[in-house]
Amino acid sequence: MSEHKKDIDAHSGVATTGHEWDGIKELDNPLPRWWLIIFYATIAFSVVYWVMMPAWPTLTGFTHGVRNYSDRAVVAQELSALKAQRAPEFERLMQVSAEQAEQDPALMNFARAAGKAAFGDNCATCHGAGAQGGKGYPNLNDNVWLWGGTLDDIEHTIRVGIRSTHADARFSQMPAFGKDGLLTEAQVTDAAEYVVKLAGGPAKDAAAVRGATIFGEQCAACHGADGKGDRTQGAPNLTTGLFLKADPAAVASKDWTSLRGSIVAQITTGSGGVMPTWEQRLDPATIRALAIYVHSLGGGEATVDPAAATPAAAATNPTR
């Protein structure tokens, strides 16, 4: 860009910058004034910004600016404002019973929304975002409940947890029949065959007959003579085919080869899952909202009428 060989473009009559790239030269037109004004305005703005807002790092921290602004403080403020705004509804939720709350559309809507948010934060990790569960983690949408599906049952379970550290935790223990040598491998297989039969699967007759005897001796005490389980001690109903400890895909497609394997494994190890107690982590109103949310997922049971516990009635629960 030396002055002495100022290159004037013949076509436009404008000086070029003097650089040339593969025969292409750049015209040295002045910048538009409006552009320059905006450019200087941005510089002025940034200076004002440095003075007003946190801008520069220092050795020990950063310059806070005249406004001493902090995104973190703003978020904290907004959160507490939100909490304060919701407080009256949470309060109302605890003033009535959970059933009454369900009858009040406004309160029900609030509880469902609050419950859904709390579910996403706390429960979805195990039960899934849609509460659809997984192998070993109960599906909360269906009408199969180990410890009861009424509002009170659900609320209590969330509070104390299952096999948790809580003193009143829901607790059940299935023996590890195979692992601990209570039954031989063949006996385990036979018992599993009988469970297949109970669940309406294609059982091998001879094995199932042998298994029935073993079931009567070892399993009926908890699961009941008819295999329908016992909610007072958290013993699952084995006749539904909706096995908790099996792959949900196999349950849905009734893949009996896979299911049979899962039943054998469960009788062998007697494993039981753990659900934490939420009493220390969540406040009572949030737990209630959670219970209402889970209860509204479609499988919740009515409190008063024990007859509603029969599967068909519960599926179409008319009270809700």
């Binding site: 849609g130 599906n139 949408n141 269906d142 539904t240």
Partner: peptide, 11 residues
Amino acid sequence: NPAFVTLADGS
């Protein structure tokens, strides 16, 4: 989510 739910009676 869930796309469908199987109930205790198979429905």
